[in-house]
Nucleic acid binder design. Sequence first.
DNA 1: TATGAATGAGGGTTCATTCAT
DNA 2: AATGAATGAACCCTCATTCAT
Lengths: 200, 200, 200, 200
Amino acid sequence: MGVALELFSIRDFGSVTIKDIASAAGVNTALIYYYFDSKEGLFGATLENAVAQALDNYRRLKERHSDPVDLIADWFDNHVQLSRPIRQLVKIMLDYSSTRTQIDVVDDVIKRFYDEEVEILAGSIRRGVQLGIFREVHPERAAHLASTHLDGIMVRSFIHRDYDIGAALAELKSLFWEYLGHAAVPAEMNRNLRRLQDVR
Amino acid sequence: MGVALELFSIRDFGSVTIKDIASAAGVNTALIYYYFDSKEGLFGATLENAVAQALDNYRRLKERHSDPVDLIADWFDNHVQLSRPIRQLVKIMLDYSSTRTQIDVVDDVIKRFYDEEVEILAGSIRRGVQLGIFREVHPERAAHLASTHLDGIMVRSFIHRDYDIGAALAELKSLFWEYLGHAAVPAEMNRNLRRLQDVR
Amino acid sequence: MGVALELFSIRDFGSVTIKDIASAAGVNTALIYYYFDSKEGLFGATLENAVAQALDNYRRLKERHSDPVDLIADWFDNHVQLSRPIRQLVKIMLDYSSTRTQIDVVDDVIKRFYDEEVEILAGSIRRGVQLGIFREVHPERAAHLASTHLDGIMVRSFIHRDYDIGAALAELKSLFWEYLGHAAVPAEMNRNLRRLQDVR
Amino acid sequence: MGVALELFSIRDFGSVTIKDIASAAGVNTALIYYYFDSKEGLFGATLENAVAQALDNYRRLKERHSDPVDLIADWFDNHVQLSRPIRQLVKIMLDYSSTRTQIDVVDDVIKRFYDEEVEILAGSIRRGVQLGIFREVHPERAAHLASTHLDGIMVRSFIHRDYDIGAALAELKSLFWEYLGHAAVPAEMNRNLRRLQDVR
DNA sequence: TATGAATGAGGGTTCATTCAT
DNA sequence: AATGAATGAACCCTCATTCAT
């Protein structure tokens, strides 16, 4: 599935052959059919797997932070560091949406992924607003904005061969802080700052 | 090419056959090869054609307006009204980016499309800033933000079967006005308002 | 379909490949799919075709004769002369019955073939009984006997590589005449004989 | 081999896979290759086995009876009761004849089966004729007639999904008694009758 | 300009068979 | 004696493309 994800994310479903995948994985073509029902089945499993990993990543992200500013900052950093797998994920979700016969379990997992993404952001924003750190924004709406924009960045990186994802993310990040009414200072410094404030 | 665009935009390149296109167009398969070199050639031509139409649309948009607020407002409305062809365009540009062998002329036309899109927005923003209507934002950066977010919206509409493009665009629009430091009032009313100010 | 019948009647469905058929017919493999939906489709069409020819043969047989003795005699001779195509027909009907997914139109045509075979014989026998030429046998039952035995002969010719179909048919024929209470004399002589009787 | 016979007799050789057989037998695919050389080898063994059982059945039949009428009557009853395995046997012999590479030992066993079948009938008929119970028929010829007709009945039962083997066998039986010049009375009654005659 | 027929190449899939354990 | 994993060869079928007309 790793090899498959790799290939499916740089070419489209149709142009990736089972032979490609098999030889990239160093196994016989038939062996793929020993583990997967069909090419579509492999694609579905690969997609599910990729989403599962992304969800896992989000889960760990959530566990790492109690502070909303830290979490949002980490969310952005995370996307810079994991831009490759995330791009891959967006790519195969896009491919899944065209052509592929709908598979309920895959539909579910995709929905779960986006719900979770929004939930993480919205949750943090809500807490930030409650704590008085952020402006009184609508948490879900704000989360959707960031999440959608992120997909836009990914798409751009597909279409433009020399697109600078890092720069685009940095841009989005600073804009987002601004939107939340929070100075776009590094997370750590910020936290210290707030602690200082708490002391008073 | 109309039929081809239609098909290429709902399925992926691989799963659309020349026969599909031919029979949808009501002609014989071989006739397509009378007009186009190959399937890739047809795809390229279709893409060029779609981009050309989009550029044409932008040209007319520019011609329609001298006022930056009007133009930007129209740009958003335009995207609501033409969301179908725009979605199609984004879809085939995405498909082009994966798999398809690079074709210089297509690459150029895609670049021109995005440059033009940014130029239209950036130009208006610049003028608005000069006129003192907008905040002192960085015009190109602001234009990129809107343009990228728009692609994000399109992607979402692929991935989520019941995505509300209109609502997302309305959201983006109001946010954008806010970002520009301009009340998100209807364009017309706004224009009148400004004229009043000009009179003084 | 001729080539296909040839091959399907000496090997079984599974061991005849489309390539075999194509190369035996001197055409490209893909061309077969231009005319037939699938291998099964070709098999079905071939079977239908073979049955249609057999029915046609029976129709001509019926038209040739008004005299019951002549018709029955010709029926036997016919089977000797056409033993090859008849064997082929029985073979593919057998193959159709195992494995092949039922196809209504094929089922129908097979039924029609056997009904017609029995009808031809039974009709003649009935007329012969009415004319007082034959014993008072049950026409349908007698027809079924001959028809079933004939299939037995065909089967034997598959199983035993050196089976003498002609001898077996001759045997059946003479037995059948005996069963009908009619001297197994050559048809012509017989007819003359009867004419003589009619004169009196 | 039991499972294999079962499967080979309802589908054709090509469409029965080793996996089918293995899973029907509740064992691993590879285990079949521990006991048999190849799929063909398994088929051959299965066929031999089935023939051996049929021969065994005939042997017991012969041992059960000294009286020709009893034996022939039992032969018919036997075919009614064992119509399923006999059908299976005919089916795989037919399949063997098409496609399968000839295997001498299998050819032999098939020949032995038919020889034995004819021998049993012919022997009884001969004795019956000698005893004056039957008409002066040619024993071998009569035996062949019955044996061949029986195969015809089996074939019919393959081709026609709702064929009544029992009825067809009853028909053949009564006809056969008639042919032998022997009233088609139940075997038991008949035997008693004859004993009475013997007494005088 | 338009088509029906034909083809070569290749792709997904299956399956008998083997291997390591 | 038994199995899960692995493979090579082949088969059905599709499809972009071309040819003859």
